Simulated assay, not measured.
Amino acid sequence: MLVALDRFGREMGSHRVRPEIAEVSPSVLGGSLIDITLADGGDDDRLSLGARRIWETWYQGFPTTPDQWASLDTRGRAEWLDLVRPRPDGEPDRTGGTRHLDGRFITDKPGFYCALGEALIGPGRWFGRGLDDLDDCLGGRRGVVGPFTLIWHDADIARHALNFTLDHGGKLTYFEGVLRLLESRGVAVILR
C-alpha cells in the first residue's frame, strides 16, 4: 500500500500497488548482497497521470476554498472524490437551517457530489459518489441530516447534465432521482 502524506504529515490517501520483481542481479555494493528491481504490476486501479495535479493540490493541505475541483474533467472529479472519502469516525450531525448548493459546475455526476459535499459540510468533504452513498450519508454520521433546506442555484445546469435515465423504464432521470431521495430524507429543495 502506497500512502500519500500532505506537507503536514497527514494522510491524504492511499493506493494499492502490486510491484513485480523485474530483475535480480548481484549488488553494486558487492559481497553477497543482491539488487532487486521492481516494476509496477500494472492493473486497472492505477492512478491516472491527471491525478498528479489533484494530489499536488491536496499536498498543500486540506482544501479550504470551494470549487478547487471545478476545472477538472469528469475523471479528475472522480479522482478528487477518491481523496474526499468519508472519515471513519464520522461527523457530528447538524440539522435544520439553510444550505446553498452552487450548481454552476455540476456538469457531470462526480461534479454533483463534489459540489454537494462542499454545500453541506464544507470544501474537500465527502457526501457520497452515488445514490446509495447519498442515502447513507443522509442517514447520519456524515455531518448533516434532515430536516433542512437546500437552495440549489443554477439547477438547470445539473438538470441537463444529469438527464440520463436512472431506471430501466426510462421514466426517471438521475436528477429527478436525486431530488426524490433528498426530499424523502427531509430536505426541502428549492431550485433556482
Rank of each mutant, 00 (worst) to 15 (best):
A155L: 01
R7P: 00
D93E: 10
R53T: 15
Y174Q: 04
R99V: 13
R125G: 06
R125I: 03
W152H: 15
S14F: 10
S184K: 09
L179M: 12
S48C: 05
R141A: 15
P123I: 10
L49I: 07
T173P: 01
R141M: 12
L2G: 00
D133L: 06
P147R: 07
P86Y: 06
G96Q: 03
L181T: 08
V144G: 00
E118Q: 05
I151Q: 01
D93S: 03
P88A: 02
R141D: 15
A51T: 14
L150S: 05
A51R: 12
D135H: 12
R104S: 11
G146C: 06
L49C: 02
R99D: 09
G111I: 08
R77G: 04
A115Q: 02
L181I: 04
L5I: 04
P123S: 02
W80K: 04
E118C: 02
H153V: 10
W126E: 09
V189S: 02
V84M: 15
L191C: 10
W69A: 05
D154N: 09
G31L: 05
T37S: 14
V145I: 15
G139Q: 08
Y174T: 02
F175K: 01
V189M: 01
R94T: 13
S48F: 08
R94L: 14
R75S: 12
G130T: 00
D67C: 06
L120K: 03
G103V: 05
R75D: 12
G50L: 03
H160S: 15
I36K: 01
D167H: 04
R85I: 03
R10Q: 11
G96M: 06
R10K: 13
A70F: 03
M12Q: 11
K171H: 13
P26M: 02
T57L: 13
G50H: 07
G96F: 08
V178L: 15
D73H: 06
D45Y: 07
T37C: 05
M12L: 12
L166S: 09
L101N: 03
L131W: 04
L81T: 03
L2N: 10
E56W: 05
P110W: 01
H153P: 01
A161Y: 10
L162F: 09
L29Y: 10
N163D: 15
C137R: 14
V187H: 02
R141T: 15
T57V: 13
L162N: 06
T165R: 14
D136C: 00
L33Y: 07
